[in-house]
Simulated scan of single mutants.
Amino acid sequence: MKIKEIIVVEGKDDTVAIKRAVDADTIETNGSAVNQEVLDRIKHAQEIRGVIVFTDPDYPGERIRKIVSHAVPGCKHAFLPKNEAIAKSGKGLGVEHATPAAIRKALDEVKQEIEEFNSEIEFDELVDAGLIGGSKAKERREKLGVLLNIGYTNGKQLYKRLQMFQISKESFGKAIAEVLQGEKHSE
């Protein structure tokens, strides 16, 4: 599988994992202290071939994703569920621990960032669905992020990602119904 876009990853081990899974070029941010030189390379890559941001499903990975997204509008994003990114030893979380199949799946389901989009989904609907506030909100957002392939988010980020990736009201409704149905079966 050949990837046209350049994939932005955190480090060398991520590049090795990506290259095991697909034929692609990468730019490494070298951790969460993304400097201007790296951002300039990513901007250039976006202009020439396009960019896919593929960071770890953790706080530093999300921080890098935000920095790159802010500096380079219009990026595509690939998300890896946490359970697909855990090291076999159980100590470590990241793209470098994912199987080639999990990496290919994440890249198959890449999401395009849209700058100006008015979502059909209202913030109040997230509250009503129990995704913001309440004892099960975090767990529900985690499951929803996997189903919609937008990664884990807090409540505010969820609303922004639903807009940024143009998640339709229909797709959102189906996914939240599946999340809530899963809760009923586990009770």
Rank of each mutant, 00 (worst) to 15 (best):
K2C: 09
I3D: 04
K4V: 09
E5N: 11
V8T: 06
G11N: 05
K12I: 08
D13S: 09
D14G: 03
T15A: 13
I18N: 07
K19C: 12
A21K: 13
A21F: 10
D23P: 05
A24R: 10
G31I: 11
N35M: 11
Q36F: 15
D40P: 08
I42Q: 07
I42P: 10
K43R: 15
H44M: 10
A45N: 08
G50M: 06
V51T: 01
I52R: 00
I52G: 03
V53L: 04
V53H: 05
T55F: 06
T55P: 07
Y59I: 09
P60C: 01
R63P: 01
K66Y: 06
I67F: 14
S69L: 00
S69K: 03
S69W: 00
H70D: 13
H70F: 14
A71G: 11
V72K: 01
G74A: 13
C75H: 07
K76A: 12
K76N: 10
H77E: 07
A78W: 07
A78D: 06
A78V: 00
F79I: 10
F79L: 13
K88E: 15
K88P: 15
S89L: 07
G90R: 09
G92D: 07
V95I: 11
E96C: 05
H97Y: 15
H97P: 01
A98C: 13
T99Q: 13
P100W: 05
I103F: 02
R104D: 01
K105E: 12
L107P: 09
L107S: 02
E109S: 07
K111W: 00
E113P: 04
E113I: 01
I114R: 00
E115C: 03
E115W: 12
E120D: 12
E122D: 04
E122G: 00
E125W: 14
D128Q: 15
D128S: 10
L131T: 00
I132Q: 04
A137Y: 06
K138V: 15
E139A: 14
E139H: 13
R141H: 07
E142N: 14
K143D: 04
L144H: 05
G145M: 09
V146P: 06
L147R: 12
L147V: 05
L148S: 04
L148F: 03
G155A: 06
K156G: 06
Q163E: 08
Q166R: 15
K169N: 11
E170M: 14
F172A: 11
G173Q: 14
K174S: 05
I176W: 05
I176A: 04
A177I: 00
E178G: 08
E178P: 02
K184F: 06
H185F: 12
H185L: 14
